[in-house]
């Protein structure tokens, strides 16, 4: 990432500290996944514009290679685009992918919109990354220029800092609970 890419980053996607909006999407023609089912471990949401375009192919292929490192943090990774389930199935098979691709197909882009990652007019999602903690709170997000593969270093750093601060995070929520209990 160069400095100028960073400056051009649209600021409208949901940012750190925001609870991740829940959603239910198809992962295969006959299976659905609800985001909140994954509570208890970090989740990486990868919004990308489309299956088959050469750049996403690269990005998805890269994450596929790095899966073992994401799993070291106990993290789940979900790819999301507006492509239909059969398109995803063909793409996943072609690229030998080992993580789910979710179909944000009907209503089109509804989940991308929830995360501020929908490109009106073009009808595709941004190339946006979100790292959620075990409680479903967004801890890091990044929107890459549409033509730039953001790589995985940002995701890994976010997971690393999440792992590093898991103890303090618990302490904070404990304090918050204690505050609520005060009369």
């Amino acid at each position: 990432m160069t400095e100028s890419d960073f400056v051009r980053t649209p600021a409208k996607i949901l940012g750190a500290g925001t609870p991740a909006p829940d959603f239910t999407l198809n992962t295969t023609p006959d299976q659905v996944l609800r985001l909140s089912e994954l509570r208890g471990r970090p989740v990486i949401l990868v919004f990308y514009p489309a299956d088959w375009s050469p750049v996403c192919g690269d990005q998805v292929a890269l994450y596929n290679e790095i899966l073992p490192e994401f799993r070291e943090y106990g993290a789940e990774i979900l790819g999301i685009s507006v492509d239909g389930v059969w398109c995803h199935a063909a793409f996943a098979q072609n690229r030998n992918l080992h993580f789910p691709l979710l179909s944000d197909f009907e209503p089109k882009g509804a989940v991308a919109r929830l995360y501020g990652a929908y490109r009106e007019g073009e009808g595709i999602s941004e190339r946006a990354l979100f790292v959620l903690d075990a409680d479903g709170i967004i801890r890091w997000s990044f929107c890459s220029p549409i033509g730039v593969n953001p790589g995985a270093d940002g995701i890994l750093k976010a997971l690393e800092s999440l792992a590093g601060r898991s103890a303090p995070a618990k302490a904070e929520s404990f304090r918050a609970d204690a505050a609520e209990m005060r009369p």
Binding site: T2, D5, L62, D153
Partner: peptide, 19 residues
């Protein structure tokens, strides 16, 4: 991965990724 390689080939010139 740590250096921000996002596909192959990725080049670095004097330590900075060449985009």
């Amino acid at each position: 991965v740590r250096s921000g390689v996002n596909g192959t080939p990725t080049f670095f010139m004097n330590g900075e990724r060449y985009d």
